[in-house]
Amino acid sequence: MPNKSSIPLSWRLNKSIYRLVGNKCKRCGTFFFPSRDICPKCRRKGDIEEVVFSGEGEVYSYTMINVAPKGFEQQTPYLIGIIKLKEGPLITGQIVRPNNNIEIGKKVYAVFRKLTEDSKSGIIKYGFKFKIKD
């Protein structure tokens, strides 16, 4: 998560956090999220292009958060998962309610939710979370 007080930092990440925009090396076909400037496999021979991820994937791992960090206290209990996206990358994200049907391997899709807010008078941060497919 970006620094809570840094509006420029979260603004710079808007595209990837709102729409799951990452990238792909056209040479070796590897997908990256978050975006990378250089393909670590192909190095200078790599050819990076922007990609909007489908948001579909499956639960690779998860845990329930009962004692939350600052800014998330009102949301407990909530699930955090590592999601293996259809395109390949593993990414971390919250998994939205209901909390009782979670299982490793379950299919998920990305949804747009409020992530946190600095305070009642502060900036609201939005972005992707995941939802178990019914």
């Binding site: 949804v111 409020k114 992530l115 609201i124 939005y126």
Partner: peptide, 16 residues
């Protein structure tokens, strides 16, 4: 609305 849903998140999902 769930704790992380508001007018904007509802609008985004409807628009998608």
């Amino acid at each position: 609305p769930d704790i992380d849903e508001d007018t904007v998140t509802i609008a985004v999902e409807a628009s998608k």
